[in-house]
Write a protein that binds this DNA or RNA. Structure first.
Length: 486
DNA sequence: GGCAGAAACCAACATAGGCC
DNA sequence: GGCCTATGTTGGTTTCTGCC
């Protein structure tokens, strides 16, 4: 194998930090990777968009990735650009001691280089810092005149006013101090990583907490295929990984192997009983109490939010949530509020929300946390609508409580109580077609806003409405299901 | 009344799970 | 990614209790 193939990219290195086995798979058996989820892909896409916007902080740069096909070419082109004292380079590529890095932005000022690594978040996590320190390590050794490396993040306090101002939208923090302290660490870790590859065999590492931190591993499906039995302890809800692996490492694999001596929470023994009897936990008394708060006429409600990382509407901040779609379902008919947001239309939204909900005495929701948050923010904006909006909140009956408090628990839920999971287990006739998550809906709404063709816009809008209506249908049917078992 | 140890309390932080 | 809630852990402080 040639040398360039064994260069350790930043991604590969971070895998090594998480788990040597994951790193080995990444480098030698990439085909074992799990399929990337839609939600994960959307998060990546957002990151790229924010990265591109950050380039406008230092305009006119040469983009190495757009002019090269592989890392060897990227390294060569970067070398030339640096030699020619190119003032701004995007995706500048360097390698040192077997590590390969690409920098979002590299700027030459007064004969010295400053690098910028962009993150589409407010906070700098531990993993971001490590990531940046590695880049600093390589850069320090590959570039003789490095001034500093900054992590660039979104500014939580930025409010859009007319024209987007990237200088205020982003904030930066130097990682020079941390990086300088950690230079020997990376030297050592890169040596170990190379060693792992040279061994040429899959590192013998058992599943453990590292499979989840800082991210769920891409090779999860491969390593965990032995533990997918229905009654695996890993399908028990509410347990922390510490406890689970304590049990796992002492030989416990299935729910029925958990004994009184294992000092689990009471609910775990109840679930064990549910597995044994092959029937769900049902606390009719608690379910009755919750359902008795429902008054007729009732309707299920669901809201969709749009929260772009880069604010698009005047007066909003990064990631600020704007409600754009609400559906009500009363058992026979659906009603819908849909807002285009060509400008700040929250007032219109609030008024329509009040009007649409007025006819109902009870509003069924599934985890109404977000809805309550939205209503609270509307109250802050429009003091005069306070009474109506408070009244709406008071009409809520939240079915989520039943599942969260284990008043109804079917082992098939495993660790998951989302509306999608619960309705998937308990209801036969609720299916999601095009859009399958709130995050995906948000991306569709972006497409809707950017789509110039009227016909296309109409199609996307209908898909969004279908998704929202399906959630209300599920919530409504779930209520009927629960009423039916009492 | 003074003291040590236990119990109770609190704030901060982490984890799990939800929504978008 | 952001944000919320519920729950558990930890460490520190305050209060209670029993005993001399």
């Amino acid at each position: 194998m040639s040398n360039s193939v064994d260069l350790i990219s930043k991604t590969a290195y971070l895998k090594f930090e998480q788990c040597q086995k994951a790193f080995f798979f990444y480098k030698r058996h990439p085909y074992l990777r799990d399929k990337i989820s839609v939600d994960k892909q959307l998060t990546f896409n957002r990151g790229h968009q924010v990265g591109e916007l950050a380039q406008t902080l230092f305009p006119g740069g040469t983009d190495v990735s757009k002019q090269t096909k592989n890392s060897a070419e990227a390294l060569a082109l970067t070398k030339t650009l640096v030699e020619n004292k190119t003032p701004v380079i995007y995706e500048a590529t360097f390698s040192f001691n077997g590590a390969l890095i690409m920098l979002d932005i590299l700027c030459l000022e007064n004969e010295k280089y400053t690098a910028y690594e962009v993150k589409s978040s407010f906070k700098i996590s531990e993993i971001y810092l490590k990531d940046a320190c590695l880049q600093y390590y390589v850069l320090k050794n590959a570039l003789p005149n490095l001034e500093d490396l900054f992590l660039v993040t979104l500014n939580q306090d930025y409010v859009l006013e007319n024209e987007l101002n990237p200088k205020k939208l982003f904030k930066k923090r130097s990682v020079k101090n941390e990086s300088e302290k950690n230079l020997p660490y990376f030297e050592n870790q890169l040596f170990n990583a190379q060693l792992t590859l040279e061994q040429n065999k899959i590192p013998n590492i058992a599943i453990g907490k590292q499979c989840f931190k800082p991210y769920q591993c891409d090779y999860f499906g491969n390593c965990w295929k032995e533990t997918v039995a229905d009654n695996s302890i890993f399908h028990l809800p509410g347990l922390d990984k510490e406890k689970l692996f304590e049990w796992y490492n002492s030989g416990i694999r299935t729910v029925d192997e958990i004994g009184k001596e294992h000092d689990a929470k009471e609910i775990i023994y109840k679930i064990k009983q549910a597995y044994f009897e092959n029937k769900p936990i049902v606390d009719k008394e608690k379910i009755t109490t919750l359902l008795s708060t429902i008054k007729q006429p009732m309707a299920a409600m669901d809201m969709e939010m749009w929260g772009p990382a880069i604010p698009k509407i005047n007066g909003t901040k990064p990631f600020e949530q704007l409600p754009y779609l609400v559906c009500f379902f009363d058992g026979t008919t659906h009603s819908t509020i849909f807002i285009d947001y060509t400008k700040d239309e929250r007032r219109t939204f609030a008024e329509q929300l009040i009007a649409h909900s007025k006819p109902f005495a009870s509003i069924l929701v599934y985890d109404g946390t977000m809805e309550k948050m939205v209503i609270n923010s509307l109250i802050r904006l429009f003091e005069d609508l306070k009474n109506d909006l408070e009244e709406l909140k008071n009409k809520f009956t939240d079915l989520f409580e039943i599942f969260l408090e284990f008043s109804y628990y079917d082992p098939a839920f495993k660790t998951n109580f989302s509306l999608k999971t619960v309705s998937g287990v308990l209801l036969k006739d609720v299916t999601y077609t095009k859009i399958t998550s709130g995050l995906e809906a948000m991306a569709y709404y972006d497409n809707f806003r950017n789509e110039p063709k009227t016909v296309e816009r109409k199609i996307i809008k209908q898909e969004l409405i279908d998704y929202c209506q399906t959630d209300t249908l599920a919530t409504f049917k779930l209520t009927e299901f629960l009423q039916g078992i009492l």
